[in-house]
Computed example of a mutant assay.
Amino acid sequence: MTFTERNRPIVEEFRGNGGKVGGFFAGTPLLLLTTTGSRSGEPRTAPLAYQEDDHGRPVVFATNAGSDHDPLWYRNLVEDPRVTVEIGTSTYTATAIPAHGEDRDRLYDRMADASEAFAGYRERTARRFPVVVLYRVDERRENAIGAELARIHEDLRTALGDLLEVAAFGGGPTPTLLEQLRVRCLTVCGDLESHHGKEEGVFPRIERLYPALAPVLDELRRQHTVLAGMRAELESLCARADLDPEERRAEIERMTVAIDAHFADEERRLLPVLDVVDPAALRAPA
């Protein structure tokens, strides 16, 4: 029996009974957490026991009943922190952010004090259970920083498409076409450099607010380093008059695909965080 099949009766009972269930979970504060499958891309719903933190936010615990491995729902939200939460008859979008350090320990200790099962899970494995806080997204408030990031990405995608279109000319490149290509390339590369420079300034502030996101931010920094090399390569390609047009177009297309993949990864990992962070905190000194 798969994880989904095992959970289906509980999920159906929860939804059909106003968020209440019997059996093993009877009397336990329970929520449904829907993540996006990291491999399938399909929604995956898990019933989870939870507690609230000091701010009334639900907190869930990736114990996997004391297994040596993280549960699938946790692996999913590491890849895409945008989740759906159901508590009682309420359903809302949230951003799942792991707690860190003393906050993580305090939250788990509180759950272990309230539940013998959670206290016992620690005896079954040496794994340090992730503790995840679910930050509700206020969809009435448009986060200017997240919206700006998405807008910049779309502008850069359009500019890269224009650049690829100019690079696709047939026959021998004329001076006019080469100059047009050079100007567009310099514009795209300059915008990329400025965009990533601004992001690098925001990353330390996010890391200070949510230390557990450090591995995600480190991966995005690594991608920025790779893209900086591509930017230099792109400038070189656009400056060469002796290059075969088809070869130039193919190389620009290859780099366009890689840059777009970075944008998609950044939007999946970063935009949900920007949806719940106070914009003023991102403007504060790092």
Rank of each mutant, 00 (worst) to 15 (best):
L149Y: 02
A150M: 07
A150S: 13
I152Q: 14
E154L: 13
T158H: 13
D162V: 12
D162A: 11
L164F: 03
E165V: 05
A168C: 05
G170P: 04
P173Q: 04
T174I: 04
P175Y: 03
T176N: 03
L178A: 03
R182A: 13
R184K: 12
L186V: 05
T187V: 06
V188L: 06
G190K: 13
D191Y: 04
E193L: 11
G197N: 08
K198D: 13
K198T: 08
E200R: 15
G201V: 09
V202S: 11
F203W: 15
F203A: 09
F203S: 09
P204G: 11
I206H: 02
R208C: 04
Y210V: 12
Y210Q: 10
P211D: 13
P211R: 11
A214F: 00
V216R: 05
V216L: 12
E219V: 06
L227Q: 13
L227I: 11
M230H: 15
R231A: 06
R231I: 08
A232N: 14
L237C: 05
D244F: 07
D244T: 11
D244K: 03
P245H: 08
E246N: 10
E246R: 15
E247V: 15
I252G: 02
E253H: 10
V257P: 01
A258F: 01
D260W: 10
H262N: 11
H262D: 12
F263C: 04
A264T: 14
E266R: 10
